[in-house]
Design a binder for these strands. Sequence first.
DNA 1: TATGAATGAGGTTTCATTCAT
DNA 2: AATGAATGAAACCTCATTCAT
Lengths: 226, 226, 226, 226
Amino acid sequence: MKATRGQKKPREMSVPEGGVRLKKAMKTLLRKSDFSSITTARIAKTAGVNEALIYRYFGDKRGLLHALLMESGSIFLAGLEEAVEGMEGALDRLRLIVKLSVRYYIKDRVFARILLLEVRNYNDYFESETYELVREYSRFVSKIIQEGMDAGEIRDDVSCNHIRDVLLGGIEHVCLPGPIFKRKISADSAAEDLIGIVFDGIVPRKLKGRRRQRPGLRTSGKERNP
Amino acid sequence: MKATRGQKKPREMSVPEGGVRLKKAMKTLLRKSDFSSITTARIAKTAGVNEALIYRYFGDKRGLLHALLMESGSIFLAGLEEAVEGMEGALDRLRLIVKLSVRYYIKDRVFARILLLEVRNYNDYFESETYELVREYSRFVSKIIQEGMDAGEIRDDVSCNHIRDVLLGGIEHVCLPGPIFKRKISADSAAEDLIGIVFDGIVPRKLKGRRRQRPGLRTSGKERNP
Amino acid sequence: MKATRGQKKPREMSVPEGGVRLKKAMKTLLRKSDFSSITTARIAKTAGVNEALIYRYFGDKRGLLHALLMESGSIFLAGLEEAVEGMEGALDRLRLIVKLSVRYYIKDRVFARILLLEVRNYNDYFESETYELVREYSRFVSKIIQEGMDAGEIRDDVSCNHIRDVLLGGIEHVCLPGPIFKRKISADSAAEDLIGIVFDGIVPRKLKGRRRQRPGLRTSGKERNP
Amino acid sequence: MKATRGQKKPREMSVPEGGVRLKKAMKTLLRKSDFSSITTARIAKTAGVNEALIYRYFGDKRGLLHALLMESGSIFLAGLEEAVEGMEGALDRLRLIVKLSVRYYIKDRVFARILLLEVRNYNDYFESETYELVREYSRFVSKIIQEGMDAGEIRDDVSCNHIRDVLLGGIEHVCLPGPIFKRKISADSAAEDLIGIVFDGIVPRKLKGRRRQRPGLRTSGKERNP
DNA sequence: TATGAATGAGGTTTCATTCAT
DNA sequence: AATGAATGAAACCTCATTCAT
């Protein structure tokens, strides 16, 4: 329906323009405000088109958001999965995931925020199409971690999901608009810091061995499947 | 007109009046919906008082939110600071912070979410009163980390703020309503896991020293398991 | 862009073009909804043509309705008048009118409803083209009745228009979608019942002559079956 | 909730004024246009109150219509039933029903139209509260007719429902805004005409016996329950 | 002849807020 | 201290209609 084979102009230009402009406008606005405080009037005005087009092309305001999220998110996820396939070792894969996620986060901050991290919030809106995408991402990360545990690359005395939570939560907080990016630290070095922390911990090696065992912390059992 | 009998009877004196009931109602509602989708009508109905009281007591709807946040947040922060003062060693202090934060998160999820973590979002409404509280918390955590670095307890080859980000982000993701708490894992054991990850890293000790290289994003071959 | 191959092929020639399809669509839709709740979008979609064709062919939405009404109505009226001409006696003529009207009603309920009965309603839209047709029908019925009165076939102690009203009103209520047609009584027998009632009255002949008094609204006693 | 016991003024005045004015406005407007072409803006403006009051008091636009219909209709129906109870004989009862219905029709034309006669139209709106009222009226009329048949007062060779249809349809057409009432014929004399037609038929007595039997018309069987 | 794109005007509805009492 | 009534402004959304192609 879209992407007609160059009927009028050599380039793919016959995709209805209004829809494109609306998506751009929505994206722009999401950068500054949260979804529910963005009005259709504002979107249309920003896009320079008529408000009714939102409904013609996307059903309603939320439809526009979803279209945006799916578009951006599925491209990211596909790229991520492909890149990770071409690499071996759970740790290196995780490193790659973090790096690509941070990059994505910075490039498409708005979507990233909702897709990667806001996962379980937004209770009302997200029983829908987009939610599946997010879960896929989340499961994908968990799977890599689990594989690392099975291979002995990652300690298995903490919950796999907790590790995933620390990673995703770390990404979010590292990337959120704040002092960090005002200081213009690059995406990749932020990612490396994050990886460094989560892989090796914050306690210097020389101290290791001391101050372990806390009641409630599961120890032992490094290898599984002996 | 609504059960006005006994307006000043001693027994009825202890029934919370308008302001208190409104705060309770708001808190209840925040548990289920986000701020902008809670209507004043609903607040008043939940509180069982007249809508106009919101304006008498709190100026407006946001005023009510802020009152709530400040109340809950400043108590938490005061308690946190006091508890931490009475303890030595950056690592133990951080452990305590995480533990108390997770507990607070679970007890007063709504406020916690906004105060501890939503920090830099919500940019519209939160350039105000509450913001300072949040920054105080954030700075407090950073200060502890910095002290740990200075004392050699914490590695100083990664950014202090990145460590804080991983901690706060981890707390958020570990605590958000999700599979974890449906599986009824306790607050404290979640906190311990988190600490375990961030302190020691996820890479087993026996592997340490290996694999320090940081491959450029697209290194090796595409084949796996040949 | 929509299967444009073979634009003038002989086989595709017989496919009804825009105007016809639009009329068919409108008719279909009128069967289920009333005029003002039928949207141009829906009409066009039902017809499988472009919305703009409504304007090319009929000026606007109401134009389409009128075209439809005039087409259906004038055929009916012409047939009715011709059939009635070939018959003598006012009573037999009325009988025929009722029968044909009921048949028409059932076949083209939508138009019938508007043309035969909705006569004086719809005051907003119907001060126009179609209105004349309706009045012609109405006058035609009245004329037959008047002729019957003049010829002594019909009692002349009640208003001619009232008789017409009872006939038309009876047709409407007998024909409206209701228990009757769910019970599958045929058009003709419904028409006969109606004629039977209006011609002979509902009071059995043996009682005629009695009870001619017209009691003031609140005569007799309040007690029943003492 | 309404009809408070004179809290401020001796008369029943403390019913919120907005609601009353809205109902009045709606009634006024219904006299001229049909429901779906009346806008909330127009209602509010006519009432001289704010549009939002429609929603506060009646839920929505249709709620306002229903409130109106129920109010008017249930009063009418109650009065009708009571009056009819105090009278004996099916024919006299029917006469009374017609007379009161015509009066009601003329006094509250709008509601009458919808309540008494539009019965089966309006397919969308009337699966609701009001519908039951209408059916009650309809059943009430049918019951009287059936009783008349059982008592031998009314011929039983035509369907009871068809008789009811002729009566109700006749009322509608006699009463609809048209030439009749511009000529200022009174309600009661219109009702008498209608009764005259339906009771005695339009064929003069002297002709009776001739031109009966038509194929399809059920004859015979005047008495039941011999 | 027919269409896809776009739009203005207006529809219903919601909501935070004010105010007399 | 508290309320019922009312409201302005704006939200989301629908629709008949126009126009370039």
